[in-house]
């Protein structure tokens, strides 16, 4: 889990928060409701996760519930890898 969180945090920092202090991005920071990920950024994130972890995320799973925090993203990836 920690490894996934680290990878996801790095991707979000580089793509959507360039120049931000990494310490500001907590595992529980709201990403979608907090204005960090808009709809296009969310698609990019999903494409990245699918590629990086060789998983498939269905359209209905790419929602605020699963993608709003690094915590929930890591849980989604973890569950996909187990079932895959």
């Amino acid at each position: 889990m920690d490894e996934i969180k680290k990878t996801v945090r790095k991707f979000i920092m580089e793509e959507f928060l360039p120049g931000e202090d990494p310490n500001e991005l907590a595992d529980s920071t709201p990403l979608i409701t907090g204005g960090i990920l808009d709809s296009i950024a969310t698609l990019k994130l999903v494409a990245y996760l699918e590629e990086e972890y060789r998983i498939e995320i269905a359209a209905h799973e790419a929602d605020t519930e699963n993608l709003n925090t690094i915590d929930s993203i890591a849980r989604l990836v973890q569950s996909k890898r187990k079932s895959g």
Partner: peptide
């Protein structure tokens, strides 16, 4: 922080 400013922007502007 940028995160705080993005949150504030999202509360005051269309996304």
């Amino acid at each position: 922080s940028m995160i705080e400013l993005k949150r504030f922007s999202a509360e005051n502007l269309p996304l």
